[in-house]
């Protein structure tokens, strides 16, 4: 079964915001998330396919409510908990 990320051809997403064209990030935290992703992957803590799967496994309603790099952050924290690097809920302390 297709997951929520498989949007090709789906109708109803409305107009494209062609002005959403940052160079290259909207905010500093987005850059930090990209840096963290690359650093953790380089350390072998997870690989690209695991990361992609973690993004695609975000429940549909949450997926659609998140910005692109919020999904990255969510996938990173999910994988860090799964790998035992973070305790569940540790980030919320």
């Amino acid at each position: 079964m297709a997951r929520i990320n498989d949007v090709g051809g789906t109708q109803g997403f409305g107009a494209i915001d062609t002005t959403d064209d940052p160079e290259p990030f909207h905010a500093d935290w987005e850059a930090r998330v990209v840096g963290l992703f690359n650093a953790l992957r380089a350390q072998g803590i997870f690989n690209t396919n695991e990361f992609r799967d973690a993004i695609e496994a975000i429940p549909p309603a949450a997926y659609l409510s998140m910005s692109y790099y919020e999904r990255w952050f969510t996938a990173i924290t999910t994988l860090l908990e799964r790998k035992g690097v973070l305790e569940s809920g540790e980030l919320d302390d």
Binding site: N5, D6, V7, F13, A15, I16, D17, D20, D21
Partner: peptide, 29 residues
Amino acid sequence: TLCSCYPLALLGPSPGWYKSEAYRSRVVR
């Protein structure tokens, strides 16, 4: 359509709209 694959080395970081559901869903239809 599935997310944001892109030839990063040749094009730089992709723009926000490339990663949007609106672009991904509509450009193929």
